[in-house]
Design a binder for these strands. Structure first.
Length: 490
RNA sequence: GGGGGCGUAGCUCAGUCGGUAGAGCAUCGGCCUUUUAAGCCGCUGGUCACAGGUUCAAGUCCUGUCGCCCCUACCA
């Protein structure tokens, strides 16, 4: 008996035998349970010694069987719940009438037991059970009890197996929750309010990316999945909501890589009467609080390098970095194009600003390992950004890089409706996608008057990657996009 | 889009020069009341991703398809 169907039939048969014994193999409500972590905490105060069984220290614990050691009329089970593992001991003498059902248990089943806390001869904290409750029969056998699940395709396609078979995976997602909560708490502490804006948009904007398109049947209109919440959040500034943020799932119909998933999560925020310098402090502030909540300090490993998140982070002008690493001035179009030739870039159909940016990406980005704010971008690339008061060709924008990866993007927001409208109408040559798609209602909103403001977007998946030392965005997204396969396969 | 790699039992993996499809764990049957991946004895279990081709003979070589991973390009 060993093909998958045979293994499952064996387990189905055991579920049937449990029913014959009057036991529902799928259990029901089970109350007053202690987590395995809580049991450990309690045991720490009991001063147990090897061989103790404390009949006065009772506990009820539930979880999944991940290891099973049967020694005749005594069974040791390793039970896993959301907080960790704990050993159960079930002896025929103690559980009496339940013994026949216990012999029908398999790896992967969920059970619950009441028992006395104790410690075995070898010093292992153990729940010595005297009652037994069947909570769920696993029909599909779990992966290797020792190696877990290592096939990456199966790990992503069947993440639920990955999560219970590979405990470090679950910890990454616990940390993800802590990080996102820290970001929320930080912003709430700065007097922001959290809002929700449309994910289905008739006009997409706020970023340069291809959208997913869909259709609303009742209204018979074309809709786009948002690529960014930017233009809606800025409308809220017009409405007098002076500090707003949204944890926004964005959808971009682009390539997939270790740093890109078609749907990803950003926190985007706008602060009236602020500017991009304030936004730098917001990035530092939310990251610092997340690190404090996670523990582990501000110097953290990422792959082969150590990243130092101590504030303040390095602040560098875009133009200075370009001069340092490419040896050309961002305002000298001829020199930039000559450099592009050296780099083998075909720039004949690109606007000057686009060439500058391609050269920047190829020469500078590799040097941006430690957290760095790169600020004052070529204005032509930034249709939603306010111009530098002393140089029309510079936009008050920064991107923040960590480990060569863009973590966030911020502006001193453009609030002049005439300039905004002109920017929307200008199409930049050589840019595949543009963030300058005319949104007349947004221009109208600016005409009513938007306060000067700073705005920021931070890629939360990438922040989680960095802080949890995860090398792929798929390792921090529970169900990363995979090509669909028929349910009968894999 | 381009390049490279991978796909063998439920899981983790071997498989040499092309010559009978293998191991551990799990399962199944025995023994076993203090184990720690329990142990011991015994037995099962395969569309070698899929479809073709070369060959006396293909898991192995060739072509195509599907899926996944990495690099690269685009992007955030």
């Amino acid at each position: 008996m060993s093909t998958e169907e045979q293994l499952k039939d064996e387990r189905r048969g055991k579920a049937g035998k449990m029913r014959d014994l009057g036991i529902d193999p799928y259990g029901g409500r089970y109350e007053n349970i202690l987590s395995t972590a809580a049991v450990r905490e309690r045991a720490d105060g009991l001063d147990l010694t090897a061989g103790d069984i404390r009949t006065d220290e009772r506990a009820r614990v539930a979880g999944r069987i991940v290891l099973q050691r049967v020694m005749g009329n005594l069974v040791f089970l390793t039970i896993r719940d959301g907080s960790g593992d704990l050993q159960f001991a079930l002896s025929k003498k103690n559980v009496r009438d339940d013994w026949p059902a216990i012999k029908l248990l398999d790896l992967g089943d969920h059970i619950g037991c009441d028992g006395s806390l104790g410690m075995t001869k070898t010093g292992e904290l153990t729940l010595w059970a005297d009652t037994f409750t069947m909570l769920s029969k696993a029909i599909h056998p779990p992966p290797s009890k020792w190696h877990g699940l290592s096939d990456v395709e199966l790990r992503y396609r069947h993440r639920y197996v990955d999560l219970f078979a590979n405990p470090p995976v679950r910890d990454v997602f616990r940390q993800r929750s802590l990080i996102i909560q820290a970001v929320r708490d930080y912003l709430i502490g700065c007097d922001y309010i959290e809002v929700e804006t449309p994910a289905l948009q008739p006009i997409y904007g706020g970023a340069a990316a291809k959208p997913f398109t869909t259709h609303h049947n009742a209204l018979d209109i074309k809709l786009y999945m948002r690529i960014s919440p930017e233009l809606y959040l800025k409308r809220l500034l017009v409405g007098g909501m002076e500090r707003v943020f949204e944890v926004s799932r964005n959808f971009r119909n682009e390539g997939i890589s270790t740093k890109h998933n078609p749907e990803f999560t950003m926190v985007e925020l706008y602060e009236a009467y602020g500017d991009y310098n304030v936004m730098m402090e917001r990035v530092e502030g939310m990251t610092s609080l997340a690190i404090e909540r996670l523990g582990g300090g501000f110097k953290r490993p990422y792959g082969e390098v150590e990243i130092d998140y101590s504030v303040p982070w390095r602040r560098c002008k875009y133009g200075d970095l370009l001069l340092e690493h490419a040896g050309v001035s961002m305002s000298d179009a001829q020199a930039v194009r000559k450099k592009a030739d050296e780099l083998g870039i075909d720039h004949t159909k690109m606007a000057d600003a686009v060439v500058v940016n391609v050269v920047f990406e190829q020469t500078v980005e590799d040097h941006l390992v430690q957290p760095t704010f790169v600020y004052d971008y070529p204005a032509a690339l930034c249709p939603l950004t306010r111009r530098h008061p002393e140089d029309e060709n510079i936009a008050l924008r920064f991107e923040v890089y960590v480990n060569r990866m863009e973590l966030g993007n911020a502006y001193t927001e453009l609030n002049d409706p005439a300039v905004q409208e002109a920017n929307f109408r200008e199409q930049l040559a050589g840019e595949g996608d543009t963030m300058a798609i005319m949104d007349e209602d947004f221009v109208l909103a600016l005409e009513y008057g938007m306060p000067p403001a700073g705005g920021l977007g931070v890629g939360l998946d990438r922040l989680v990657m960095l802080l949890t030392n995860s090398q792929s965005i798929r390792d921090v997204i529970l169900f990363p996009l995979q090509r669909a396969r028929r349910a009968t396969e894999v």
